[in-house]
Design a protein around this nucleic acid. Structure first.
Lengths: 178, 178
DNA sequence: ACCTGAACACCGTTCAAGT
DNA sequence: ACCTGAACACCGTTCAAGT
């Protein structure tokens, strides 16, 4: 069945580029990684990337979707753990992606594509955070504000690494009955 | 006294470049503003900027110092107001500098100069936040963690504008007796 | 001391040309 | 359909040359 092999190859090649870009963007940063470097890591020429992605921002979105999907899969397998532990574990896992967090914020105000992704991401984070907070008994009247606080603190912790102890103290303070 | 006029002129010219860069970095973003554009706005050639600043990151630091000094002056004149009101006012004032906030985070991991500035900035924010929280009766044992939460939430609010009402609810939740 | 124009290496992106 | 090399406009930065 050579009829449906083409689309399959295309997906694979696209993934190879995304994986190469994800590693470079994560380790060295988005602005610091040129299209030529991504291409070299993926075994193609820089112009080839433009056959798979509209531009560099579209490639970034590919990377973000890839990393997010991975993170959600890993997280869903720990859904049984206590909420506080899960949050601490997520922060620890995501700390290595702090460069992606900052570049999304930096480019959201200049690229409508990234801005839209950022909005959708926060909608997702909000619903996950709200569910968790409801689960530990946060009163409904405070839920929206507490959700915002929770998401901001997680983002803050990703961008400003703390010791394990400090992290624990912060999360305990926020998840303790009030 | 022509003897000490030179240093004075140099300061003035430097300030003109900083003010031009501050406006452009604030409105359009750091990466989106070329040295040529800054130079044109300041009435010089791009190469001239390099006589006053080591490189573009050093210019950014000049801008950050300038904006921070302004903000601290404006804030110190409101020191008598209730702590919660002061925080809300500060957030409202600083919202227009969200592009500076994000670029500092983005470049801290690539430029040692920016990283050092970022560290010093957080030391300052921490001490201001800790003083305020102590003032409203936060127990000493929770002060470090609460300070971190406070700073992260303020940064989050700068980067993710909310309605006045939501802002108020969030700050009230954090400043309410526990 | 201060400022400039020309030049350098690099960047994201386009496109005509190949298979 | 997929990939490339050459080219384009732009970028931060350097430097020899001017005053």
């Amino acid at each position: 069945m050579p009829r449906n092999r083409r689309p399959q190859d295309r997906e694979e090649k696209r993934d190879e580029i995304v994986v190469a870009a994800a590693a470079l963007f994560t380790e060295h940063g988005y602005e610091e990684t040129s299209m030529v470097k991504v291409a070299a890591a993926a075994g193609v020429t820089s112009t080839t990337i433009y056959w798979y992605f509209e531009d560099k921002d579209a490639l970034l979105i590919g990377v973000l979707d890839h990393v997010l999907a991975q993170a959600l899969t890993a997280g869903s397998q720990r859904a049984e753990e206590p909420w506080g532990d899960l949050v601490l574990w997520a922060i620890e896992q995501l700390e290595r992606y702090h460069r992606l967090v900052t570049v999304v914020h930096a480019r959201a105000s200049v690229s409508p594509l990234i801005d839209t992704w950022h909005d959708r991401f926060h909608t997702l984070m909000d619903s996950i955070m709200a569910d968790g907070l409801r689960g530990i008994g946060v009163p409904e009247a405070d839920l929206t504000a507490m959700t915002r606080i929770g998401v901001f603190v997680v983002e803050g912790l990703l961008m400003h690494p703390q010791t394990t102890l400090e992290r624990r103290h912060i999360v305990e303070l926020l998840t303790s009955r009030r």
